[in-house]
Design a protein around this nucleic acid. Structure first.
Lengths: 252, 252
DNA sequence: GCATACCCTTGATGTAAATCAACTATTTAC
DNA sequence: GTAAATAGTTGATTTACATCAAGGGTATGC
């Protein structure tokens, strides 16, 4: 908590490295956009999207209770969403990787319920929600796309509920690693070797475990040769074994 | 599991007790519909809604993996949503009371991820999603309403995640009782005395606790005179005390 | 270059809730 | 009306993970 981070929202369209970025040429558009959009529609969507300066590690994208006006697609880097509960404790509610959309928690009551913080240098595409809604009235596929995005967020959260309700510490960690692995491979990255963008503390907070337990599980999985851990670098050596652990099929 | 329940979808508009039910005169319309809809718009919405025979206790409204085509507003009674995880265990993902809308988990991939089962005799209003989407293109408030409904489902699920991740058994039970209490009072019912529609098993499953623990917590809260329990009938004697327990402020 | 802070690991001990077990109450079935 | 199944309670014991504690590694600042 040493840095007093500020929200980065200013749009600088003359920023050199952003000049050519648009939804039409973005590598992530198969993840973040409905595939079925006509090319003209993509242009119209692109025209409402704002691309600001990158967030630095620790910067807030928005804070809980801020008035809601946009959702954000992650273009590079990674962010975490978290809430502060009544008794003042943090709860990490999700990690968002490139191509994924964050901010839909704010629609319900026109205020964000989460705060979103960059885990590393990250750039985002801001999608003003009112303009997206207007556009949706003309592009039915866009409306459908946002309904689907939100529905998938619901089912993902319900999977986390199941994880917290039914799974052991080892199963939770295995499931998180598999989730990150599959999200990486959707972006054409390696499913077997990657760098975790979040700290052990964040992992523990997200999975309802203490940092000590997270650390112990990592070493235990490494001793079983299922994974290789070097700080935040993870190599999955035995994907099937990791899957069976996540599914609770491993010998206890 | 003795009853092989079937899905009740047949619409019988000549069914006498349903004759006069419509969204315009429904007592629940301030909960289930956007308040800001024009009266003509309510009629148009009403015209796409189908009201079938009531579900009996244990009947399925839909099953996980069924093709998605509708969301459902609960008109009376109560239902639970649940998934079966990979290892075959059930996870209750939510309880839905009158005025609340269930089924939005199916939008993402055009299949329901949950099964929904009546906890007691229940009647529902079926809202065919495709027709609702078309109508949304003409009624922007309706589009907004569904975005809000889904967003609130997301934030609710995230609250459950926090509950499972951070709270003790006592805090979880207290939070569930408070949730049901406040949802009852939204429907002009007593916030202090009500009947739980679900079994201890369902409560435990939802909150990530065993049935024994649920039972013990109920007796413990009763001994502290915070609540009075008689089977499924609950009386909240000390609302403030229950709130402070839910917030983790109680002496341990 | 050293100080301060932060992040992570490993070990010893404590505890909340799970499990195992036995029993009662209530509903369903014939 | 009785049998059988289902739902809930209470007690004894176990256990997975939290907590407490100590130390090492790496980054940040002056």
């Amino acid at each position: 908590m040493t840095i007093n981070n500020t929200i980065v929202k200013s749009q600088d369209s003359s920023c050199p490295h952003d000049k050519k970025v648009n939804c039409g040429n973005c590598r992530l558009n198969t993840i973040c956009l409905p595939i079925s959009l006509h090319i003209d529609d993509i242009d119209r969507l692109n025209s409402i999207i704002q691309r600001g300066k990158p967030l630095q590690k620790g910067d807030y994208l928005y804070r809980a209770n801020d008035p809601f006006d946009s959702v954000y697609a992650i273009r590079s880097g990674a962010v975490k969403a978290m809430t502060i509960s009544d008794n003042g404790e943090e709860q990490v509610t999700g990690f968002y990787l490139p191509g994924e959309v964050v901010g839909m928690d704010g629609i319900g009551d026109n205020r964000y319920t989460n705060s979103v913080i960059a885990l590393e240098t990250a750039s985002v595409c801001e999608i003003p929600f009112n303009r997206m809604e207007e556009l949706s009235l003309q592009i039915p596929n866009l409306q459908r796309h946002f309904f689907q995005l939100m529905s998938r967020e619901i089912t993902q959260d319900q999977q986390v509920i199941t994880l917290l309700s039914k799974s052991s510490a080892e199963e939770r960690i295995a499931a998180l690693l598999l989730s990150i692995s599959s999200r990486n491979s959707r972006r054409q990255l390696s499913a077997n070797a990657f760098r975790l963008p979040m700290s052990r503390t964040d992992i523990g907070n997200y999975l309802g475990l203490t940092i000590e337990t997270v650390s112990r599980i990592f070493t235990r999985l490494q001793k079983q040769d299922v994974i290789t851990v070097d700080k935040k670098e993870i190599v999955i050596n035995e994907m099937d074994k990791l899957r069976s652990i996540a599914n609770g099929e491993a010998d206890h």
